[in-house]
Computed example of a mutant assay.
Amino acid sequence: MAKQTPKKHQSPFRMSCRELVVRPEDKKEVPVIREVIREAFAPMPFSTGQEWQLVEKIRQSSGYLPSLALVALCDGVLVGQSMISLLEIEDKKKPHNALVLGPVSVLPDFQRRGIGQELIRIGIAAAKRMPLPVMVVVGDLAYYSRFGFEPAVPRSIHMPFGFDEEDYLQVLELKKGALKGVQGVIKFPPSFFDEKGDLL
């Protein structure tokens, strides 16, 4: 059985890791991962409170890639997760298969210690071994640029009509020159939407 996450507000100080292990998630860890995501996003003003549902819906979809669904264990305790899954970029000529990064979650007591960065770095390295050209993410420009992401709009890659997060849409080449000829509109799979049709 997977170890439980630390209790909320375990310490007034940020926790440290003597040993950090990043690896693919195990099915037995699903309940713990759910709580990590809930706690990680709870303080964030932009959170929908549904990020854990997104991860679980992706896990049940055809876009789920087990080798790119990662967890971070600090001294044997699961404190973070990241998900990379499939989507399409549609243009008038043809769809382009791509990857999407997110959500990435780290328990509040363990944030700002490089754990999220390590999850992303290892996830990107694993994605580069797959036969897919590009990865997209919707998030903070300054944060994700350190991993090589760049704004997507200048590359003629856009969010679906009606979504106002376009300024946060970023793209990363997984193979040199892979973005050449790739343009169009992001097509999120059904797993990314709630019953009302809103992004989770």
Rank of each mutant, 00 (worst) to 15 (best):
R129Q: 15
E25Y: 11
D164K: 04
D91R: 05
K93L: 15
R112G: 05
L199I: 10
S105I: 06
L107N: 02
S61G: 11
K8D: 04
V137Y: 09
V106L: 07
Q170H: 04
L87N: 10
F163G: 01
M15S: 14
L179A: 03
P154F: 11
P66Q: 05
Q81D: 03
A142K: 06
F147K: 00
L99H: 02
F149N: 00
K7L: 14
L172Q: 02
K94Y: 14
D75Y: 08
R146K: 11
V32G: 13
K3Y: 01
K176M: 10
L132A: 09
M130H: 09
M159G: 03
S145L: 10
Q4E: 14
N97S: 15
S105G: 11
D91A: 09
F13W: 10
V77L: 07
V71K: 07
P66E: 13
V153Q: 09
E195I: 04
S47V: 03
L174D: 09
R14F: 14
P66M: 08
F110I: 03
D109Q: 15
G197I: 00
S47Q: 09
L169W: 06
L132P: 13
Y144V: 04
G114W: 08
A98T: 05
G177K: 03
E173I: 01
K3T: 11
E35I: 08
Q10T: 11
